[in-house]
Design a binder for these strands. Structure first.
Lengths: 383, 383
DNA sequence: GGCCTTTTCGGAAACGTTTCCGATAGGTAT
DNA sequence: ATACCTATCGGAAACGTTTCCGAAAAGGCC
């Protein structure tokens, strides 16, 4: 029998069931239950970072004093502070950001949700975001939706669980419902949309010149003599696809060209699709003499495929694309594009968000439009 | 005079200095000091996420019970659990990961330090890391060193302050001292190097076939008839530069070709440098008939510049590069490369690290070498 | 010496969660 | 009724910070 904790006697001790695998006892004199402690076996303790308490103990002061010394409070003797700073440095003290964040209720971290980190456009945006965020003392946590709506929702939840101070998001191509955004917005989380934005929720947004860029590209094709201009449109759900398509249509209308639905082909950013699109167009009684690809990836693919089929670019078919990359300049013939500035977009979005975080009250659902410029290259010069 | 908190009388109350701007009093009867509270003004309270305590209160149970219900403990009645889960769902409860991490002493987050997120190679690695990490329930925090040693050190410190469970790092080109790594290693932080590794510290490492790839590329050039092969080497400090240069030298030696130092040109990954390198080589009494660029970026630049100068590729000068990208295939002439698998490298590094985190005890400084393959294209086929 | 002051520090609460430990209520055998 | 048992819950401590509040000490002024 065990020995009672209070009376130290074993006389009136009886068994009293099991608790978490350990025998339980009851002392009738003391009317108290107890169990026998196991010799806790874990000498394998993970090395800890030094804490404020460690410093406090080693100097014989209170933790609050150490905190004051480290945070530059005036409520402290300068000699005490010096000593504390010395010891802190000696012990390589690093404040535990988790504890700080938990206490302050803010993490100084912003969450980013993008479709894919490998796409150069988004990588550029990320670099811009990091640049501004780091400058402002914010960390960045990145998630990829992989173009899946459910993953995007999970991403948002994960970032919210990590208690990010704000969210930057560019939607997946599947996303047509925005409840996951609305829910967090209602809870007061600052959110800024960029590139693939939506009209359904009231957030600050950073967008490209989607309409203007498309208009300029198509206008350029028309000025180069193209009369039947096909468009390789993106996923029809995406707002940017729609806006760019609008720009295309507006240009046709403006120059009095007919709108032919058989020349509009929607793709899902997948490799093979531009080929099926091309096959479709070439099988038409009147094939196109110009192609506008909403997404630069499709433009490159089309260029390669046209070359492969020995179709002359730009004389037989001219090609232009939206968005830019080194490859557009180096491929032959070089590709006419509407050049974007992803880095700047990232910077703009991040500074908008951080502003939004700091001044929660004076928020307005502003929409910022990034600059962009027509870069005319060989794939479209027919005159 | 103020009213004493204890005796509620103002008779024996005297002033007693100022404390944080507020008048302080002393009650002589009660021998107690006190100040008058200001009416705290902050109705503008940031919306809070619902907590376990909120759920507990709304159901009239203890927070520990709610925690048990949410974490699938057996120590709970299934009806109680159902109720708690229902309410939790209703209130859109999300556990505060900060509090969890603080308590558990682990964040389920891994830190990544890379030179630059915009470089396709690193973007690919990142994607691989994210893939494995997400699968294993880990979040990823990314920092860019921008090729600066001091920034890299700051990055490491920031990630440590965030209490990441482990670190993945690819060093900046400036980094020759590894104290920042050694310090964390001593504290027990699991660290895995990838790509730009070093020999100075004992960590697990994931590397490319730097030596073998270089050897294969140079061997290929020799087999194509090249006899004076120049090498556009990277920053001489980087171990991968050294290893790749070794591969180059070994191939020359193996085939009995002389080693000519004037054919070795070190660059710093900057744009203009490949041009100065080219100028240097072309000014030699015996210019090279083949160029091996350690970095694919330089290879592309050289290709463009050679075309620009109307120098025939590969007949006059053949070009090969290390590393691959879409552009290598699409440029004309297409570029012969030693193809790498960045995504797989990221996956390997991440799973190595996570394994290291979970089984801290059975760690060994293993070195994993990724696969790679010679992809022969037009820029080097002379026979 | 009494009154008032400033400087400097310690104690405790709070952030939200998990986990340890014990208490209680209700069993079931003898 | 006694001796044992299980199931289910609450309370409190802990993680590492910051911050609120007050105490102690020491000095100045009349």
């Amino acid at each position: 029998m065990g020995e009672c904790k209070q009376c130290q006697s074993t006389l009136e001790v009886v068994k009293a069931g099991f608790l978490r695998g350990r025998q339980r006892f009851y002392c009738k004199t003391c009317q108290v239950h107890f169990t026998i402690k196991l010799p806790a076996a874990s000498p394998q303790k993970a090395a800890r970072q030094t804490t404020i308490i460690d410093i406090a103990k080693s100097l014989g002061v209170a933790p609050s004093t150490v905190s004051r010394a480290l945070n530059g409070s005036t409520d402290i003797n300068s000699l005490t502070r010096q000593e504390i700073l010395r010891v802190a440095n000696e012990m390589d003290y690093r404040p535990n950001l988790l504890a700080q964040s938990l206490h302050r209720g803010e993490t100084h971290t912003i969450g980013v949700v993008i479709p894919n980190i490998e796409r150069p456009f988004f990588a550029g945006v990320l670099a811009g975001i990091q640049n501004v965020a780091t400058e402002a003392g914010y960390r960045v946590m990145i998630c990829q939706s992989n173009e899946s709506h459910s993953t995007e929702t999970l991403n948002v939840q994960a970032l919210v669980a990590s208690r990010v101070d704000g969210l930057l998001i560019s939607h997946s191509k599947e996303t047509t419902s925005f409840e996951h955004i609305r829910l967090q917005l209602k809870k007061g989380l600052p959110i800024v949309h960029f590139d693939r934005v939506c009209n359904e929720v009231e957030t600050a947004k950073v967008v490209q010149k989607d309409f203007e860029g498309s208009f300029a590209l198509v206008e350029h094709l028309i000025q180069q003599g193209c009369r039947r201009i096909a468009v390789c449109a993106g996923p029809p759900q995406l707002l940017i696809s729609q806006t760019r398509l609008e720009g295309y249509k507006a240009a046709l209308r403006h120059y009095g060209l007919p709108l032919d639905d058989s020349l509009i082909y929607h793709t899902e950013f997948k490799q093979s699709e531009s080929l099926t699109a091309l096959n479709h167009w070439l099988s038409l009684p009147e094939p196109p003499d110009g192609i506008f690809a909403i997404h630069y990836g499709n433009a490159i693919e089309l260029l390669v495929e046209l070359k492969h089929r020995k179709i002359q670019i730009p004389t037989e078919i001219a090609v232009v694309g939206f968005g830019d990359e080194l490859i557009a300049e180096l491929i032959e013939p070089s590709l006419t594009v509407f050049h974007l500035f992803p880095f700047e977009m990232g910077e703009t979005a991040a500074s908008l968000l951080i502003d939004n975080i700091i001044h929660r009250d004076t928020f307005s659902p502003i929409i910022k439009k990034m600059r962009g410029e027509l870069r005319i290259r060989k794939s479209s010069i027919r005159l």
